Computed example of a mutant assay.
Amino acid sequence: MNSNGFSYRATVQTKKDEWIEVRVPLDKFEATSFGRVFKDAGPVKPEEVNALSFMLSDKKAGAFKMEVESIKVKRAGK
């Protein structure tokens, strides 16, 4: 996610061989630039989000499979 020149990231945990549903509120995303976290960057501005990506970052070699059934955005309070 990109807003104000920063990328925003949120960490989620997966479970091997198990289908899980993940929900990540926008206020759980943290602003980063080149891997550094910027606490005072402000929140994600939904109107400025133009991409979404996934990164495997556990630093463990080996096979990995991820299936995504859907991605939804819900408005707060709904």
Rank of each mutant, 00 (worst) to 15 (best):
E69L: 01
N4L: 08
G77H: 08
P43H: 14
S53R: 06
E67Q: 08
M55F: 06
I20H: 05
A31I: 06
R23C: 15
E67R: 03
D40Y: 15
K78I: 11
K16E: 03
V22P: 06
S53E: 05
V12T: 13
M66C: 08
K39C: 01
D17F: 11
L56S: 03
G5E: 07
A41V: 02
P43N: 11
G62M: 13
E18C: 00
M66S: 04
S33P: 00
K60T: 09
G35I: 03
N4C: 05
V68E: 02
F34S: 11
K16C: 05
I20W: 03
K60M: 11
S7H: 01
Q13C: 05
L52W: 09
M66K: 05
D17C: 05
K45Y: 04
T14H: 02
E48I: 00
R75S: 15
K65G: 06
E30H: 11
A41G: 06
T32L: 06
V44Q: 03
I71C: 08
R75M: 10
K72R: 08
T11C: 02
S70N: 10
T32W: 02
M55Q: 11
I20A: 02
K60I: 14
I20P: 00
S53L: 06
E30N: 14
L26S: 03
V12M: 14
D40E: 10
V49I: 13
V12A: 04
N2S: 10
K60V: 10
V24C: 07
K59D: 09
E48L: 08
R36F: 04
T14C: 13
K60C: 01
F64I: 12
E67W: 07
A10D: 09
F34K: 12
F29L: 03
K74V: 13
N50S: 12
E21R: 07
R75T: 03
V49H: 00
L26E: 01
K39V: 12
S33T: 05
D27I: 04
A63H: 14
K78N: 13
L56T: 09
T14W: 07
K39N: 02
E18Y: 03
A61I: 10
K59T: 08
K72S: 06
K59S: 04
R23N: 13
S3N: 04
K72H: 03
A61E: 12
E69R: 09
R36M: 02
E48F: 05
E21V: 11
K28A: 10
G62N: 09
L26H: 00
S57H: 08
A76S: 09
W19L: 03
P25L: 06
F6N: 09
Q13F: 15
A61F: 07
S57G: 15
D27G: 04
S7F: 05
G35S: 15
T14Y: 01
A10H: 05
R23D: 13
R75V: 14
D27V: 11
D58Y: 06
A51M: 14
A76V: 13
N50E: 12
